[in-house]
Every structure is written in C-alpha cells, then in structure tokens.
Design a protein around this nucleic acid. Sequence first.
RNA 1: CGGGGCGUGGCGCAGUCUGGUAGCGCACCUGCUUUGGGAGCAGGGGGUCGGAGGUUCAAAUCCUCUCGCCCCGACCA
Length: 436
Amino acid sequence: MRLSQYFLPTLKETPSEAQIVSHRLMLRAGMIRQSSAGIYSWLPLGFRVMKKIEQIVREEQNAIGVHEMLMPTIQPADLWRQSGRYDSYGPEMLRITDRHDRDMLYGPTNEEQITEIFRDAVKSYRDLPQHLYHIQWKFRDEVRPRFGVMRGREFLMKDAYSFDLDFEAAKTTYNKQFVAYLKTFKRMGLTAIPMQAESGPIGGDMSHEFVILAVTGESEIACHRDFLDNDWLDNIDLEGDLQVVVNAFTDKYAATDERRDPEIEKTLGDDLVVARGIEVGHIFYFGKKYSETMGAVVTGPNGEDVTVEMGSYGIGVSRLVGGIIEASHDDDGIIWPQSVAPFQAGLINLKPGDSACDEACEALYQKLIDAGVDVLMDDRDARAGAKFADMDLIGLPWQVVVGPKGLKDGIVEVKNRATGERQEVTPEDAVKKLAG
RNA sequence: CGGGGCGUGGCGCAGUCUGGUAGCGCACCUGCUUUGGGAGCAGGGGGUCGGAGGUUCAAAUCCUCUCGCCCCGACCA
C-alpha cells in the first residue's frame, strides 16, 4: 500500500475526549473516529487490525470443530419473552419498534436466537453435540460508555453456543473452548489468564473470564504469581489431553474481584499478585437455563425427552484491538504484535523526488510484496521527522528507512519497532530479514 | 442513574468573572528557501462561539431551557 494513496488521518495532538492510552492512540493513529458515545467508525488501519484479530479467532474456533454462521443484529422481542429476558434485561437493551409497531431489539447477545434455531432443527440425541458460532455486532446501551472501543455500546463479538446431551459431554466442550481461548490469545501476543468469574445475568455454574493484565485495566484481579512469570505456561502442551491442560491452569489461584477468596489468598503469601485486568473473553456453562425455558429438547437413546446442556463462549473482538494496545505501546505509539499488525512493515522514502531514493524504494516495495510481506510505503512528500513519527505511532513491527545518505553506500536501515534496534543492511538483506 | 467538568475553524486552546459583533498554535492553500526525528519566511482561506429562547443600544461573554461529549462512582463483553 502506498501511503500517498491511503486514508490514514493521523493526529499530532490528542483529541480532548480521549483519556486512556489505547483510545488516544487509536484516534491519533487514524484507526477510528467516534460517531457518538460508545459508537465508532473503523477507518482502514483500524479495520485491518480488527480483521486480523477476527481471523485468528475464526481459525481457532474452526480448529475445534465449531461451525461459523451468522445471526441477525435485530431480533424480535417475542423470542426474548420466551426466555423471560425481555423483561429482566433492563435498559441496557436497545428496544426498537418497526413500522408495524412490532417490538424488536438490537441484540446484546444471541442465546435466544441460537436456541430457537437449534430446537426447531434438532430432535434426536444422535444429532448431538452441536457447536456453532458467529462474529457479529452487538449493542448494549451502557449507561456510561468509556475507554474508547474497550467499553463501547456497539461492539464486535465472537459468540459460540454449544448443545450437549449430558454434563460430561458439556464439560468436554467447555474444555475445548477453554484451550482454544488459550491458543487464540497466545497467537495475539497476549497472556490471558483464565479466572473464576461470576456468570452474570446469563447465569450458570462453570464460568471463566479470560483477562489480560494492564495498568489501565477496568477491574482488579488477584492471581498466583506464576501466571506472570509464565515460563511454565510455555511448557504446557496445548495439544495434549484437554483436562490436563485445563487443570494446569485452573489449579492455580486466579479470581476476578468479586470472586476473590481471602482464605486462599492468605495461604499464597508472596505468591499473591493483585493487579488490574481487561476481560477479553468469557466462557460459560449454563446447563439447561435456556433449553428449559425455550424447549430445546431431544429424544434420548431410550426414547425419553432430554433437555440439552448448553454453554456460550464469547470473545470481544473489537475490545481486543484496544486491549492489545493497552498491553503493547510506548511513548511514541503503538507496538503491534506481528500477528495482528495492520501491515508487517513500513517502508519510508526519506526523499521522494530523489531518483535514487525513488528507484530504491520502488524496487524494495515490489520485492517485499513478492516475498509476501504486507508493506506500507510512505511515499508522501513530507519531512523525515513527520514520517518517523507517524510510523512509530501506527506501530508496524518493522520499518525500512531509505535515504540518500545510506544509499550512497548501498545501505538501508531496518528498525524493529518493539526493541528500537536498528541495523544497516543492503536492500536484499532487508527483504530476507523481513520475509524470514 | 448520582456527583463533577467541558462544548469557540479539522485538532489543541485563549477570550466568558469585569457585555462593545473573535484570537493563538498546529493542520490546510500559494510562493520561495529548506530536507535523516513533526522546517523557515512571506502571503492566504476557513468559525459568528453546541442549539433555542430571553435581558440589552449591543451577547462567545448575563439569565432560562435544551442537546452533546468527557471524568469519578454504581453497572457491564
């Protein structure tokens, strides 16, 4: 991509409404613009990151055999009357009336919708288990949206729903998602700690929040120090026995604020860490809560009616964009992990109009593309300082700087955004380095 | 929803107390000079001060109402 032809409206100054670092950086880096409180437009750069995150989530869901589908954003109120949640959900639910005066709502979640689909289609235990997900926009009319996209009213979420015949099967499904979540967040360069959590208005017994640590985190958490000194985490074979992996994580103490246990914490002593975290995922087993109220029943092996066991598994996709920035930035801007970076590298032409620079950049640009490197070339007629500042701000993992001075010696500079390390190499070596 | 703050050009702000029809920096346009970490000089365009009503000879400034946004708290992916 050529920056001269791209839409990247960066800001030198921070808009006054943005307080926390991810919100500030997302506005300054031209990733988002606010439409109204808690509702954002995603500009090209931000959209790319969100799509990268979405794709990682998708791949890990597909890998455990969950099937992708898509349910609507607008749902009929009657569906929610069946579960009783139309009345209990409260003002967080955005209620709409259509032209025929029918009660509708903008979905804050999709348990009712998926349960209706399931119960109308699945009648025999032979068709179990079923495990489905979609990645769709949700709306929750928060009283007080804040923190930019981390606590918006409109947000993109992956939510999966499982249907099993009995508790044992449901537990296995839960474990699959548990491990899939570990892999998903790890791929994004995050350390997400599974924590015992309240199951909230969705209800249920077995529930874990996946929390990433950040000083600006929204809530306090407590956990065993081991989660931070995470070399043992790297030694867990995520491909191994599910229950063993899940136990490895759940055996160590980790709890959200409302679930903390003073007794256990006393025994931990110096191993106790209290920190702030951002919830990026939440998995629930809630048994028959919806299957009972909505009649999701199959015929069992002995001809008896069996009310199915359900669970739901959410990941805040749009929230993760902000969450990753909270976990990975410095004074100059964002530092994207490779896997979610909007481009892998930035190519800075320090002197557009200079034929040596132009030719070297065009050649490098093409070679990088040919080598499969997603590159953003800053070919704007701007000053060097502005280009460096913008490139640091948008946080691409690598920067290749091409200027007249280096070119005299046949050299370009490769900078690692995360470490700040710079190397002077030939253009050929630069391509090798980035492609490798 | 309780408490607090703020709305003045694209962004950041001053001016409001002590009314006299708008200013600064950045950004933008033109020209010249510059060119390896957000350039310099000169010239230029853009706002009627969130909105409505009121007081006054005169309102960004005073009064009333209203809308929006932000922060703390309660609540939440």
